[in-house]
Design a binder for these strands. Structure first.
Lengths: 149, 149
DNA sequence: ATCTAATAGATGTATATGCATCTAATCGGC
DNA sequence: GCCGATTAGATGCATATACATCTATTAGAT
């Protein structure tokens, strides 16, 4: 008696969101020992790669509403991981990793790496590659097409 | 000056979640006229397909924590879309679409269909197919492997 | 039948997420 | 330089999401 597979869903969005929940739980379990949520880790890693950016730019990179980032960045600011200062345009904040943020990221990286490696192993190299390519391609198709500079 | 593409993210989970946010926004925009969130539509559609199920079963189908469904089903119950009754095991609730729920689903389906079709057109048939196959495969790999009946 | 362990949901808490709306600051015309 | 339109974030609100913990109920062992 094989256990019935999780049934397929007719909705592309629903199917994607379901998988997203599963992946999120895997990564959050891995990051729990260092007290990071998936989104927070992503912000740390992105800031580390992108350097100093405004909230709106970070929102674009992550396809996340800028007002969502207001809350997340507040939480992370309280913990001292993100430093912000006013830009030349005094409406905007320019955010970057603080020292403590770099430390936190360094502490988290091995845990993230472990989740990532484990996932790759479970899915196999080919499926993993395809997954990255596909999500990136979908993102590019839906966001970067038909936008002016 | 081509606009820079949304950069790729090193984290599989982050990349997936970003795409998930984009898709969710597309579908939620389409469903807004009928007052449904993506999750709520998914619950309606799933109940329609699955018939009467317990909260835990619904959670398994959607890979969603059962306690998350407590809140979602409460909201949907208040709106009269979901009917529940106690099962033989009196700890559990058996949920099903109510008449009003079926009506609501019928009202929503054309809007969902439009989003789904539009997305398929934007991505192309091949990418869309791959997307469905891949998300399903990842879900099966991560959930249905190594579980006893 | 009884007592313990396991299970189904409910609740408290924290974060994630986006929209509508608001304020402050900037930009474009004039 | 002034004024209306736009833009960057902030805030109120509703929902989504999961974990820890609690209660009610069932299942299992004796």
């Amino acid at each position: 008696m094989t256990k019935p597979l999780t049934p397929s869903l007719p909705c592309i969005c629903a199917s994607f969101r379901r998988t997203s929940r599963i992946l999120t739980q895997l990564y959050e379990e891995a990051l729990r020992p260092v007290g990071l949520r998936a989104t927070q880790f992503t912000v740390l890693q992105t800031l580390s790669l992108a350097g100093e950016v405004t909230q709106a730019q970070l929102g674009q990179i992550l396809a996340m509403d800028s007002t969502t980032l207001t809350r997340t960045l507040n939480i992370m600011g309280r913990r001292g991981w993100v430093a912000k200062r006013r830009g030349a345009d005094r409406r905007e904040w320019r955010m970057r990793l603080s020292k403590a943020g770099e430390t936190q990221l360094k502490k988290a990286l091995p845990h993230w790496e472990k989740a990532q490696t484990r996932l790759r192993r479970q899915l196999g190299a080919e499926l993993s590659e395809n997954l990255m390519k596909l999500t990136q391609k979908v993102t590019n198709t839906l966001i970067d097409k038909g936008e002016s500079s």
